[in-house]
């Protein structure tokens, strides 16, 4: 593809099924992966609920896109960060998540945000 590689960060702050933000964000990440940029995905606040494992959507008759986060690695999207505070506030731990992530403090996430060329918020 050539050209400069930019640092893109996607910030997810919404729960998965109540609004369409989470799914839209995931689709943008997957489409954006084709451009071979330096991508990271952050889950903060209710965004951590997007990657809770064991989601079963048959009864609500909605798409269970939580499984799609497992495909991110194959799209070379490997930097997944999760807010430590957001997990704790929700009684969750790293073991409750469907993908391997790096748990970061708010200060660490702030530093990562400063490094980016582009930040997209959902």
């Amino acid at each position: 593809m050539g050209g400069d590689v930019k640092k893109f960060m996607y910030v997810n702050r919404k729960a998965p099924h109540g609004t369409v933000y989470a799914l839209e964000s995931l689709e943008v990440v997957l489409i954006g992966a084709a451009f071979e940029q330096d991508v990271s995905v952050v889950f903060i606040d209710d965004g951590v609920f997007e990657i809770v494992k064991g989601q079963v959507t048959t009864e609500v008759e909605m798409k269970n896109f939580s499984n799609t986060y497992k495909a991110l690695e194959m799209y070379d999207v490997e930097k997944l960060y999760v807010s430590k505070d957001s997990l704790e506030e929700r009684g969750l731990s790293e073991d409750d998540l469907i993908v391997d992530v790096e748990v970061k403090t708010a200060a660490e996430i702030a530093a990562l945000m400063e490094e980016q060329d582009v930040i997209l918020s959902f």
Binding site: A33, N67, M74
Partner: peptide, 15 residues
Amino acid sequence: EEYQIAPAVRVLTKA
């Protein structure tokens, strides 16, 4: 079935 998504060509080829 596993990922609930149809893969992009690049990903399909690799997989």
